[in-house]
Design a protein around this nucleic acid. Structure first.
Ligand code: FES
Ligand code: FES
Lengths: 149, 149
DNA sequence: CGAAATAAAGATAAAAGACTCTTAAAACTA
DNA sequence: TAGTTTTAAGAGTCTTTTATCTTTATTTCG
């Protein structure tokens, strides 16, 4: 569904939108440790998100990364598009080229509906909403809940 | 979304449910040629579907493969489950283990809905319905329409 | 039974995705 | 400016998926 890279990107952005982190510079190594991701791998993902204007980062002592915009202005769909592209939103279920209403496969009509709902889900999910769920409702964004605070 | 193997499996089953093929033994090499799939690769996929009782096959002269049951009794979901398993129907969007209502991630509620719609799509798609769409409405199951009949 | 056709199986190869290791570049500190 | 910290970048490894090549087993037919 989503690539692992994209999942890490979403988790990272939600993490940076949590009240503890927001408005701070957070080291990639810190995020990596919290979310159980390889630091150097995460570094590349963060960099991708910096390139498209979702995150900012600075190197060096007291460097780190943070949200480039207020959390309510960043949607999950932005991250998905930045990392996985729009394939999942307009690709044929059977992988046939040129998926559209004029040239449908047998699944096209129903699959189009599912895709629209999927798109709506990612479009309606802003980072502040997601972070609020994690923070207020204690929902998880990683395997084991973080109990060390 | 679906693995390439699963896509080939679905295409093959729809092809075998078309009026021209139904009730006949069709050679794997014929299907492979029609659907632009590597014959030996398709042979393994057909064999998987034989194992779970969706297709039957015999070797030798005038051998081939065919639907093990009437087309209206085979659903797309059967093929998906046989090849890709039930991961796409019960896996967390963020890949977290143990996706369920008691232990949700921030996407769980919405993602559960999308997954249910996806499941409904595959459950309501029987091979006779899919084949009828291809046959009657001239919908496609492969890249270029088959014009040689 | 022998020959030909065809699916099944095993081993190998190619491609993509996920992840690691190493080095370089930048920013701060003193 | 020198030293330290931290992100950026490049090359390389590992694993899974996809696909191919070769051999084997089975079936039909003459
Ligand atoms: S053509 Fe297949 S889903 Fe649109
Ligand atoms: S826990 Fe993430 S989708 Fe269910």
């Amino acid at each position: 569904m989503l690539s692992q890279t994209c999942i890490y990107g979403i988790q990272t952005c939600i993490f940076l939108a949590l009240p503890e982190q927001v408005e701070k510079r957070v080291r990639v190594s810190t995020i990596a440790e919290e979310l159980h991701i390889s630091p150097t791998f995460l570094s590349k993902i963060v960099n991708q998100l910096v390139q498209v204007g979702i995150l900012k980062s600075v190197r060096g002592v007291s460097g780190g990364t943070w949200l480039a915009k207020p959390a309510q202005e960043i949607k999950a769909v932005d991250i998905v598009l930045a990392i996985d592209g729009n394939r999942i939103f307009n690709e044929c279920l059977l992988g046939l080229p040129g998926c559209n209403d004029r040239n449908p496969c047998p699944f096209h009509q129903q699959w189009s509906n599912v895709r629209l709902q999927l798109l709506a889900m990612f479009q309606s999910s802003t980072l502040d909403t997601l972070a609020a769920k994690v923070n207020d409702l204690d929902l998880r964004i990683r395997q084991h809940k973080n109990n060390d605070h």
